[in-house]
């Protein structure tokens, strides 16, 4: 299992008595590509921030890649996040004033993985395989199209060869055509690198790309629908 949750309870400190998440039991096996769908405000992003260690749960068991997150120090969680989890958001995936190569390199900077000398070559190979034209590599990324930015985000997420890739609505800012391109590219690259994929979206039509599809409503017992 790459993720194991049991009796997980979470609420934001500002509203301590309204539970956002209450998950009795849930797990994700290695190598699986899973879609969790849920309407906005159902606690998707909160769950993801718990899985990447940015948020700490009130109580319960949470194990990611065999590490018990709530027993780690925040510094350890920073390292864990840098090394083991790739992350793609809906937008603002990149630092706008840096170019594509710098953005990817930044992610590598925080991890302890891979010898830094060869990393530039790896970045170039990755950008190539993601169909980013060479002339755009040195541009500040805010000058590039959203589609290109999302593809660079994949490169950024995968540069440290994480075991788990988390995608948070990565296609919702894209039009249909770009979205299809993005999904095809994402699936082929996680297949070839054998990365476990946890994909969160409100868009049920993406189900066809995944081996397993779940609804957050089924997982989460908390009735709250007002936090995201």
């Amino acid at each position: 299992m790459i993720i194991e949750l049991a009796k997980l309870k979470f609420s934001y400190p500002e509203q301590a008595d309204s539970l956002v998440l209450d998950i009795p039991s849930w797990s994700l096996p290695i190598g699986e590509h899973t879609l969790i769908h849920g309407s906005s405000g159902s606690g998707k992003s909160t769950l993801l921030n718990i899985l990447n260690g940015l948020l700490s749960v009130n109580s319960g068991h949470i194990e990611v890649l065999g590490q018990r997150l709530n027993e780690m120090t925040s510094r350890q969680r920073d390292n864990f996040r840098a090394n083991s989890i790739g992350y793609v958001f809906q937008q603002f995936n990149l630092i706008g004033y840096l170019n594509a190569i710098d953005n990817v390199q930044l992610a590598n900077y925080f991890s302890k993985s891979s010898e830094k000398s060869s990393v530039t070559e790896e970045i170039k190979a990755l950008l190539n395989s993601l169909n980013i034209p060479k002339k755009d590599w040195q541009q500040p990324v805010h000058k590039l199209s959203i589609g290109q930015q999302q593809r660079i985000a994949i490169a950024r997420a995968l540069i440290n060869k994480p075991a788990l890739l988390i995608a948070d609505e990565p296609t919702s800012a894209l039009d249909e055509e770009n979205s299809a391109d993005f999904m095809a590219l994402l699936m082929s690259i996680v297949d070839s690198s054998q990365t476990t994929l946890l994909f969160v979206s409100h868009d049920i039509s993406l189900s066809r790309y995944f081996t397993r599809v779940e609804s957050l409503h089924d997982i989460n017992q908390a009735g709250a629908v007002n936090a995201d």
Partner: peptide
């Protein structure tokens, strides 16, 4: 704030 959050997600310690 987005930029700061992003840096945190890709593993930047708060000290950074």
């Amino acid at each position: 704030s987005r930029e700061m959050y992003l840096l945190r997600v890709i593993g930047a310690p708060a000290l950074f």
